[in-house]
Amino acid sequence: MFRAELRKILPYRTVWIILLLFVVLLALFVSAGGSVTLNGQQVGATLYTFPGLWQKLTYVASYFNLLLGILLIILITDEFQFRTFRQQIIDGSSVAELLQNKLLVSVALMVFGMLTVLGLGFYFGLTRAAETANKAAEGITGIALYGVQVLGLLSMAALVAVLVRRSGPGILLFLLYAWVAEPLLRFSLPDSLDRFLPAKVFNSLTPLPGQEMLDTVTGPSSALLPTEALPLALVYTALFWGLSYLVLRNRDL
């Protein structure tokens, strides 16, 4: 059934533009990052040294995940707007199949995000800090956590798209939740609770580099450790896809 999804996606220019934007913006940001001040230090060439590069890169890439979320929202809301979800049900799909296909699309986007980070990591690491190449494999598993983060964020995007059904309001709601609503909610909740909110859990998978060092100064941060966040992120991902299924199954198409 994934062949049908490919038939929709491959000729769609919007998809390629957003994916290209994701790669180019991330590459530009990382490339320009050498002159950025992080935690009060001029980063310079130390930015690109293995193995620390992976954590920095996945942290930076997490900000660009929203682009992938927007892309998934477009792909799902298109199906409502063109009434093609409706037609596919008529043609013999089930609601579960429709969502399984979008889940597969989100897995493909996850793989794309991971490969992009991997590719940029090796490119910048090997060209700008070649002397540390022997440590390139250390910390590379952080990319897997980044993948889970992408998958989680995409499950949230899918739920928003299924609920709102229109691309403009869907994208707006998605960005508002991730950037405004949940941060505001965190202010009003005690620290012990706010670290369990979904966007916060997903963000905890790619922590700010040097967070451990900051913790020794300011006391432990409220965020979960990546290993603590991992099972919760997977639970949220399953929950959001499950909710999308229930919404789609119980509504008229």
């Binding site: 049908a4 000729p11 409706r86 013999g92």
Partner: peptide, 18 residues
Amino acid sequence: NFFPYLSARQNLLLAADV
């Protein structure tokens, strides 16, 4: 109900898959 950016043929191939 079809994808506007696909050709008639691409749309039918997609429907045939479904």
